[in-house]
Design a protein around this nucleic acid. Structure first.
Length: 426
RNA sequence: AGAGAGAUGGCUGAGUGGUUGAAAGCGGCGGUCUUGAAAACCGUUGUAGCCUUACGGUUACCGGGGGUUCGAAUCCCUCUCUCUCUGCCA
């Protein structure tokens, strides 16, 4: 969430930045007026509380000295009732402020390309090039069906559409990708591997800024008020919720593999074919708890690390920087990595790497004690960054398509062969 | 799932209605001593909101929320979590 102080003191700047994200400035005005009345009441009630504290101490003393204090007690009873009324008012106003604040996205970083929607994203890099096939390319549905490595029908029988069943060498290939990613991050990129819960409580969802705004996008188990994670970002972020980190231990970097679950409510009919949009998919996540002054650099590092995997796999990809209108709720700056699909004839998103600065850490109360030049210390919110490194399903689409042969067999990229123990699927 | 116990500052752990933001110890920081270090001794040591240029002031916080009271860490209600025993189980 945004800092209420920033809104109070730099309302015009906040409004201007939010306008770039197609946000209504009226929400900020609402917060400002609520905040103003909150402070007015706060001042009033704090003076009353001060009085009450002082007089209560006097009453204690009088009672000790066996002096009659009935008059003061009666007086304070009145004050106490008034305080209760004002405290109620404060609570009401505060919950109103929260209910607006929780729906306002992060401010875009300076220099983020301005734009209304995905059409105005900026391509910043292209790696590799398109292959030429002297036969007609098959799409991933046909390929995987012929090779008997993915069974969408039976996945649907088991759970519903969008719950893929991997089979045989398909399952092995998936496992190989995950292991390749994790091994690269732990041995070369300096990440600590974690294996997290995939069901998380409401507090964790709130800390990651997924709830309340996106609650209907989540699978939710009402009986225990648990949510199936849409990304490992949620449990990993919550590893350090409500903690004060040490300056010298930053950045703290975690990677982790999880299944990810998304209801994708309202997205039926769009890219729902086969593997393109599913309710359950696999992803290796990169996450960093980072000092604010280093977060820009950290974002670029994570992007390079994610790209490195695709380069090792030999997959043609491009990087786009998302424009202000297309960025995710919590992100200040965000890159997407897209892989080329020959059968779909378009780019598919395989990774998203974001700098969420202090937007989530404020809500999650993740701080560190910073030592200033004068030797004093100051609490600061850490910057949080997350990135997919990588999500497998769309990558699998691109990889199978790109590595197919005329006979419908598919070659396994060199770097995966030590994991799969086979070099072709036929 | 049943029975019981508990949740206090960075940690251990006192505290059952009135100078208790909270004893004591440990840890941290500063200092004395020392060639240096250790030990010893002295001092200091939470977070957040609001007011203030600043010094400082003030409010809140003893798992979360609500209540009783002039006054709550302390009493009541409720929720969550942890531990022990029993049961079940990959």
């Amino acid at each position: 969430m945004l800092d209420i102080k920033l809104i109070r003191e730099n309302a015009d700047l906040v409004k201007a930045k939010l306008a770039l994200r197609n946000e209504d400035p009226k929400h900020i005005d609402d917060i400002l007026s609520l905040d103003k009345s909150r402070l007015e009441i706060l001042h009033k009630v704090e003076v009353m509380k001060e009085t009450r504290n002082k007089v209560s101490a006097e009453i204690a003393k009088m009672k000790k000295d066996k002096i009659d204090a009935d008059e003061k007690i009666a007086e304070m009873k009145k004050v106490g009732d008034d305080i209760k009324g004002f405290d109620d008012d404060l609570r009401t106003i505060e919950s109103k402020i929260e209910s607006i604040l929780y729906y306002i996205p992060a401010l875009p970083a300076d220099g983020t390309p301005e734009g209304k929607d995905a059409s105005e994203n900026v391509e910043v890099k292209v790696w590799g090039q398109k292959k030429r096939f002297d036969f007609e390319v098959k799409d991933h549905i046909e390929l995987t069906k012929k090779l008997d490595i993915l069974d969408f029908e039976r996945g649907t029988k088991i759970s519903g559409s969008g719950f893929p069943l991997y089979k045989g060498k398909g399952a092995t290939l998936e496992r190989a990708l995950i292991n390749f990613f994790l091994d690269t991050h732990t041995t070369q990129n300096g990440y600590t591997e974690v294996m997290t819960p995939v069901l998380v409580n409401r507090a964790s969802m709130e800390a990651a800024e997924k709830v309340p705004k996106f609650e209907e996008d989540m699978y939710h188990m009402a009986e225990d008020d648990l949510f199936a994670i849409p990304t490992a970002e949620v449990p990993i972020l919550n590893i350090h919720r409500d903690e004060i980190l040490k300056q010298e231990e930053l950045p703290i970097r975690y990677c982790g593999f999880t299944n990810c679950f998304r209801r994708e409510a309202g997205s039926y009919g769009k890219d729902t074919k086969g593997f393109l949009r599913v309710h359950q998919f696999n992803k290796v996540e990169l996450f960093s708890f980072c000092a604010p002054e280093n977060s820009n650099e950290e974002l670029e590092k994570m992007l390079v690390q994610a790209c490195g995997l695709l380069e090792a796999l030999g997959v043609h990809y491009r990087v786009i920087e998302l424009c202000t209108g297309d960025m995710g709720f919590s992100a200040s700056k965000c890159y997407d990595i897209e892989v080329w699909s020959y059968a779909e004839d378009k780019w598919l998103e395989a990774s998203s790497v974001s700098n969420c600065t202090d937007f989530q850490s404020r809500r999650a109360q993740i701080r560190y004690k910073k030592t200033l030049d004068n030797g004093k210390t100051k609490m600061e919110f850490v910057h949080l960054l997350n990135g997919s490194g990588l999500a497998t399903s769309r990558l699998m689409v691109a990889m199978l398509e790109a590595n197919q042969n005329a006979d419908g067999s598919v070659n396994i990229p060199e770097c995966l062969r030590s994991y799969t123990k086979f070099d072709v699927i036929k």
